[in-house]
């Protein structure tokens, strides 16, 4: 268990507080837990184990996510999911899943130190993201409950609309966070 007081956000050097007046609001939620979960939904034991630990079955519809209490589960592939847990809980959830899935063909990998989450809200949020994201982010097409893996400014990201329709959350690699942060700051210059 890492000491949280020793952790630094990957965006510690970037100040999103002083963007242009009409720029979307960009906020980082650092230090969440991220688990990469793999298994076959055709195996009932796998589904039952996930249901027992996380309180919900892994979503089988492509590009959808489900919420269960403090946990969120993103569909990443037909046999792959991203489980987001509150800060400091990834280890606990991982060991619970490991115990339940001991004899089941599956894998759980803790990715917590490799990813970070940004919330982009405000009326120009879609405009900012579509500066270099090929996905159609219009609310008619991309609704809350859906998620997608795509690219932003050539770096990989997982994106989902926020429930209240105010914007999006994007999950990016920690190693690309500084680059994406600077890219967004620069892209916001036009929203004066």
């Amino acid at each position: 268990m890492p000491d949280l007081f020793q952790q630094h956000s990957p965006l510690v050097q970037i100040d999103f507080g002083e963007l242009q007046d009409n720029a979307p609001t960009i906020e980082e939620t650092p230090f969440l837990g991220y688990l990469n979960l793999r298994g076959k939904t055709s195996n009932m034991a796998f589904v039952a184990a996930v249901l027992k630990v996380l309180g919900v079955e892994p979503p089988t519809t492509a590009n959808t996510m489900v919420e269960s209490g403090d946990y969120r589960i993103y569909w990443l592939g037909p046999d792959e999911w991203l489980v987001i847990t509150p800060t400091g809980q990834a280890g606990k959830v991982q060991s619970e899943l490991n115990a339940e899935l001991k004899d089941v063909f599956s894998s759980i990998v803790d990715n917590s130190s490799g990813l970070t989450l940004l919330k982009i809200t405000g009326e120009n949020a879609t405009k900012l993201l579509n500066r270099d994201c090929p996905l159609d982010l219009h609310p008619w097409v991309f609704k809350p409950g859906q998620c997608a893996q795509t690219r932003f400014a050539k770096a990989g990201m997982t994106i989902a609309p926020l429930r209240d329709g105010s914007g999006f959350e994007i999950i990016i690699r920690r190693s690309f966070a500084d680059y994406i942060g600077l890219w967004m700051q620069d892209a916001c210059v036009e929203f004066e």
Binding site: A62, N63, G77, P134, A148, Q149, T150, R151
Partner: peptide, 17 residues
């Protein structure tokens, strides 16, 4: 821009493939 249909994800931009 070319759209390619992924059998899992649906139509996506060519640059993703």
């Amino acid at each position: 821009m070319l759209l390619i249909e992924c059998p899992y994800c649906g139509e996506r931009d060519e640059t993703e493939f």
